[in-house]
Write a protein that binds this DNA or RNA. Structure first.
Lengths: 251, 251
DNA sequence: CGGGTCATTGAACCATATCAAGTCCTGTGG
DNA sequence: CCACAGGACTTGATATGGTTCAATGACCCG
């Protein structure tokens, strides 16, 4: 299965052109040379739902772009209490590009497709191409902003606001993905890529409380259930109000 | 007061050599040229306790190294609820080096000394010197780790564990600053740079709960009060246990 | 149809918030 | 030096939002 570079390269580069993670991913804006070198060390991998992608305190073996699916980043206390500290969607980057060990667990919340780069080779490329490191830095700043928004949620929001905030994040993502340009406040239908237990671990609640609050938001007409694993929000503005959001906050 | 570069440079560079933020700061490991260019655009500033250093959603005018004092980064909900999303000490870097606006408020928790760089000039230097951006990226990754550790605290820890965790952070910092190499678990004396209200906003609690938990930890012998604004922890291991820490966790 | 997982609902409890006094500092002016 | 004013902190009593424990319901897959 080991192809020589000249055999594998054209195929890989072709796939880069149609990559779902090209827009917004770390590859965006890279030059021909960077992209070609990146594609040379890349390989795709599919990971079934529920599987651990890498573990905390482990030496990282690879970094990856997420091509499809949802990844949850978790940390746990000694007695088993868990907190989800990040959710990654395409075209997010997975892995801590510097440092000796992973800072948290990464698990496939759904089936996940990755475009993986061996750690050693990727770090070499980063040293050679400041533009690549620059893209990663920007992505990390965005992750830091998201983490801090979540700290506000965890520390200061009520259960209802927490659940509404979570649904709002999903709804906004879905709207952006559907790239609806209409500025109005029309409804959005979106998938729930997480089970109740994951939502609870993300929001610092119990599954029972999450369930009750979803029921409540439903009874208030802020969301409706569309079959299993799918919801519809008639008004993002109303949902944002329930989330205690700072108006224009994009989180 | 405007000096020509050849006049200001030697003085500035000399002060860089004895800079309290040199060890661990972004300047560490930079070459002569980088350092000299950085020093050329730098100016020092002292900010009294309680003053806002910059505001959320504002275009950043400068970035800075913290030379002394404590800075709190805060976010607020529309109705006034507040959450501290980060605490910065020397030699941390203050500011979001990319992006159009500040992501949160920065306030001087104590009197603060800064080494400021005008935003525009600093970003130019970053483009020219990948090594500088690399240092900043590493620092940002550390901040992200810290933010995620704090998410676990906010989402999953009890009030007692939260307060113990906070005191543990301060104690570990003080120990490291005193650079005690003795591996044993001796006591540490440290300052409390935050008032109760700040501690509460950092831990997602009320001041009353913070006060009660400190009283409780004191009565349990885990800490003692040393005058005003100073505490002593006889055993970091015991404090870590009360913090529900993952043993070797350095946060 | 049966067994498993996931989600919902109900009832009781408890940790933390809230409301309300008090106490301890610290600086200031007489 | 004392009196006292204001802020920061502590302590107490009560309320409550969210957890816990337990049962039930919905769905999927074999």
């Amino acid at each position: 299965m080991n192809l020589r570079p000249d055999q594998i390269l054209p195929e890989q580069l072709r796939s880069c052109r149609s990559c779902p993670a090209a827009k917004g991913g770390i590859c965006e804006g890279l030059g021909e040379e960077e992209l070609s070198e990146l594609s040379r060390i890349a390989h795709h991998r599919t990971i079934p739902a529920g599987q651990i992608i890498f573990s905390e305190n482990e030496k990282p073996e690879f970094f990856a772009n997420i091509l499809s699916g949802t990844v949850r980043l978790t940390k746990a206390l000694a007695d088993g209490r868990q907190q989800i500290v990040g959710i990654l969607f395409p075209p997010d980057f997975l892995g801590r590009a510097h440092g000796a060990t992973n800072a948290c667990f990464a698990e496939a919340a759904t089936e996940v497709e990755l475009c993986c780069y061996p750690a050693e080779a990727f770090r070499n490329l980063m040293q050679r191409f400041p533009g690549l490191e620059h893209r990663l830095y920007e992505k990390t700043l965005d992750e830091l902003d998201a983490a801090r928004d979540w700290m506000v949620l965890l520390g200061r929001k009520t259960a209802r606001e927490k659940v509404a905030s979570f649904l709002l994040v999903l709804a906004r993502r879905a709207r952006k993905a559907g790239c609806a340009v209409h500025g109005g406040d029309e409804g959005v239908t979106f998938e729930l890529p997480l089970r109740r237990i994951d939502i609870a671990d993300y929001l610092g609640l119990t599954i029972e409380t999450v369930s009750r609050q979803i029921t409540r938001l439903r009874s208030e007409g802020l969301v409706t259930t569309v079959g299993s694993g799918c919801m519809h929000a008639p008004s993002l503005a109303a949902l944002a109000a329930a989330a205690g959001q700072d108006e224009d906050d994009r989180a």
